[in-house]
Every structure is written in structure tokens, then in C-alpha cells.
Amino acid sequence: MPSREKLTPRRVALCGMMVALAFILSYVEHLIPFNFGIPGVKLGLANLVVLLALYTLDLRDAFVIAVIRIILTGLTFGGLFSMLYSLAGGLLSFLLMAFLSRKKLLGTTGVSICGGIAHNVGQLLVAMCVLETGNVWYYFPVLLISGAVTGTLIGLVGGLMVGRLQKYLAGRR
């Protein structure tokens, strides 16, 4: 575990690389929208990095990566408005995944599924506030299923990456 106070070059470099990776994945998703033909559904490739960070770095670093990723991609590809949605979804999903990844209850797939669903719920909550209507909840079942499916994909791939990265980081210590 990296110590809480020390800002070692290694830690800075790792965080920087994670942010860069998240940014690139967001860009890839922006170029090729994997929306499965359903509006509002996204694969959430960048979530892969948040998952990685949660399992390989300490909580504070993972949080910083998640937030910086959202701000950067929001400014580059979206706008302030879409950033609000990403932020709500991202924060809610981060909190849930952070909690679950520290408990040994679920594997990376389960954690990622919960994260995917939480992400969608966060965005629905913002939509509810912005539009001042409860009607958005009619869309919830679709988002529930899509969150579970994309979460599974990300969780499986993420799990493989987490194992490898942990091994690599342990060898490099």
C-alpha cells in the first residue's frame, strides 16, 4: 500500500497513467459509440479504469482518478451540462464500487455490475431534478438491464486486468 502522505514519483506516475488510460478509453467510446441501438445506453469503457484503480491503488487516488477523468472528458467531448450527468453517475457508482470492493463479498464482476447500475441511477436522478418529473423512472428497467450487461463485460475484462496489474505492481515494489 502506498503511504497516505508520501507523494512518491511512482504514485504520481501511476495515477497519471490511469487518468490517461481513462481519457483514451472515453475517446474510443466517443469515436465508436457502443450503444447497442438503445438510446442512453453506453458500454462505459472508462469504468474499466476506475475498477482497476480501486483494486490496485488506494481509495483516495482512485477517487481523484475517477473525478479528473469525468472533468477532462466532460470538457473535451460533452459540455458542462453532460458533465453534470457524468458526475452524478460517476460519483454514485464510485461510492458503491469503493464500498463493495473493500468488502470481499463480490468479485470484480459483481462490483462492476453494481457500479454500472449505480451510474445509471445517478444519471436518472439528475434527469429527474432537471426535468422536474418522475417520468424518467419509466426508463429504469432498460437502464437496469443495460447496466448489468455492460457491468458484466467490464467486470470480466477488468478482473483479468486487475490480476495481472497486481502481480506486476507487486514484482516492481
Binding site: 463479498l105 463480490l106 468479485g107 470484480t108 464482476t109 459483481g110 455490475i113 453494481c114 447500475i117 419509466y138 429504469f140 428497467p141 432498460v142 437496469l144 438491464i145 447496466g147 448489468a148 458484466t152 467486470g155 470480466l156 478482473g159 483479468l160 486487475v162 490480476g163
Partner: peptide
Amino acid sequence: ADKKIAGRRDILLLAIVLVIGGICMLIMA
């Protein structure tokens, strides 16, 4: 292969979520 990636509980969670979502969609349809 690896329990850390997807154990029985993860699969159960996925199944539960899919069933709930499916039922909700069915009711709406």
C-alpha cells in the same frame, strides 16, 4: 476460473438484476 473475477454470488446478482429488469419491462409492455 477465478473466484475474484466472478464467483457464484456474482452470477446470482446478475441473474437477480436481469429478472427484476425483465419483470418491470414486461409489466410496462
